[in-house]
């Protein structure tokens, strides 16, 4: 079984972003970039499925300019077999990404597509669900466990009240939650080997999809600053302040 793993290049999760002074967007110049943490978990899960004998090939795909090849090489170093970069300049929204991925799914015919549940930059949490809709496949979002069971996959999902398990017909779409697994580190020999693994480049324009944006960002501003608080010395003082100053307890 073939597994397709779409990944995204995003700002490193430890970086505190700054909003540009003209409020057009956040400033990404000279900022450390990395593979989106949820996508890393998706790669790890695919590689584990291969190691368990459930998957035969793991294909990583990323959409963006040439710089996302760096993240595809990371995925190859983590154990993906080959990679596809879909060359696209400028902003794309989740729907555009899902439409491009739909074409890749049609071409590659994977049995399972594993995506991260959200990217930590746009925080949309949409692409996997949209891809599932466009391909007509079942979806197991926010997965904390994935078990292949014949022609079905059982996905345990993290939901508001706890956990929910659903059975999906294969092929299916899964999006990862943080609890699914702990991604491995790429070893130096694997990083070297990854350089020789195949990486195909395709042009988004060749897919013949209308990639115009349906949303327009009017402005991006920093969040309201919280005023600095005070440090109290004793628990008594804390309780007194909460009762009489903040009036949040009685």
């Amino acid at each position: 079984m073939k597994v397709l793993v779409p990944i995204k290049r995003v700002i490193d999760y430890n970086v505190k972003v700054r909003v540009k002074p003209d409020n057009s967007n956040v400033d990404l110049a000279n900022v450390k970039m990395a593979i989106n943490p949820f996508c890393e978990i998706a790669v790890e899960e695919a590689v584990r499925l291969k190691e368990a004998g459930n998957a035969t090939e793991v294909i990583a795909v990323s959409i963006g300019d040439k710089s996302c090849q760096e993240q595809l090489r990371t995925a190859l170093a983590l154990g993906a077999d080959r990679a596809i970069q879909i060359e696209a300049e400028g902003e794309l929204d989740s729907l555009n990404i899902a439409k491009l991925l739909q074409k890749v799914v049609e071409e590659e015919q994977p049995q399972l597509v594993i995506l991260g549940k959200q990217s930590i930059d746009s925080d949309n949490n949409q692409t996997g669900q949209m891809l599932a809709a466009l391909t007509g496949l079942a979806q197991g979002t926010f997965a904390s466990e994935v078990k292949i069971d014949g022609d079905k996959v059982n996905v345990t999902r993290e939901v508001d009240g706890g956990l929910q398990t659903v059975a999906l017909n294969l092929p299916a779409i899964v999006t990862t939650d943080l609890r699914l697994n702990e991604p491995r580190y790429a070893s130096l020999p694997n990083i070297m080997k990854a350089k020789r693994k195949p990486l195909d480049v395709k042009s988004a324009a060749d897919f013949g999809i209308d990639l115009s944006l349906r949303t327009k960002v009017l402005k991006v501003t920093p969040p309201a600053e919280r005023e600095a608080g005070i440090v109290v010395e004793t628990v008594d003082e804390l309780v007194e302040k909460l009762k009489n100053e903040a009036k949040v307890i009685s």
């Binding site: 700002i11 956040v26 327009k216 969040p223």
Partner: peptide, 12 residues
């Protein structure tokens, strides 16, 4: 909010 709430986007 975007970027874990570190920026606020106004979107049309």
């Amino acid at each position: 909010p975007i970027y874990a709430g570190n920026a606020i986007a106004t979107v049309q």
